[in-house]
């Protein structure tokens, strides 16, 4: 049963990214990505990480991709889609991608993944996660809040200016 769920989610996730590669419409791309990220959230859940799953759906699939959609609507670029890349470059990229995939899998083998399953995840519950965030990673957490503030101010400073001012 779990395998069925995993396979469906994996298929949705990979399939929507692949569709994004072939689609030539930016709005569709963004929607494909929403689908991909939502199914990723499901996969996170399968990995005993319910909090990460929730954040993934809320922040990524929800907030960030909505931001993308806003941007796409602002540009209103319908009918102005770029030409396809050259065949040689495509072949080169696919070749490089294959090499990269092989390397990544090899790297995965070298890591502990080779010895399957070190037992049930110890950090599954959200309470423990919260404890970690506010004790060992307190400084990092606080700095992240500062980062977000900086991003907020930066975005206003960059895009907030009218032309000619």
């Amino acid at each position: 049963m779990v395998w069925v769920v995993f396979l469906i989610l994996s298929f949705l996730c990979i399939g929507s990214v692949a569709a994004m590669i072939f689609s030539r419409n930016q709005a569709h791309n963004a929607l494909f990505l929403v689908l991909s990220f939502s199914s990723l959230g499901g996969l996170f859940g399968l990995l005993d990480a319910p909090f990460a799953a929730a954040v993934q759906v809320l922040v990524y699939a929800g907030a960030i991709m909505v931001l993308f959609l806003f941007a796409i609507m602002m540009f209103n670029l319908r009918g102005e889609l770029p030409a396809r890349v050259k065949k040689a470059r495509l072949a080169l990229t696919v070749g490089l991608g294959t090499v990269l995939l092989a390397e990544l899998l090899l790297a995965g083998r070298k890591l502990v993944l080779g010895s399957p399953g070190a037992g049930p995840a110890a950090g599954g519950d959200t309470a423990r996660l919260g404890h970690f965030l506010f004790s060992d990673y307190l400084y990092a957490f606080e700095i992240t809040s500062l980062l977000i503030l900086a991003a907020l101010v930066g975005a206003l400073a960059l895009a907030g200016k009218r032309e000619g001012s």
């Binding site: 909090f51 993944l113 070190a118 110890a122 990673y137």
Partner: peptide, 12 residues
Amino acid sequence: LAKSLGKAEGQV
């Protein structure tokens, strides 16, 4: 990796 190593830091 967090799951296989049994560590919560991955999630953080």
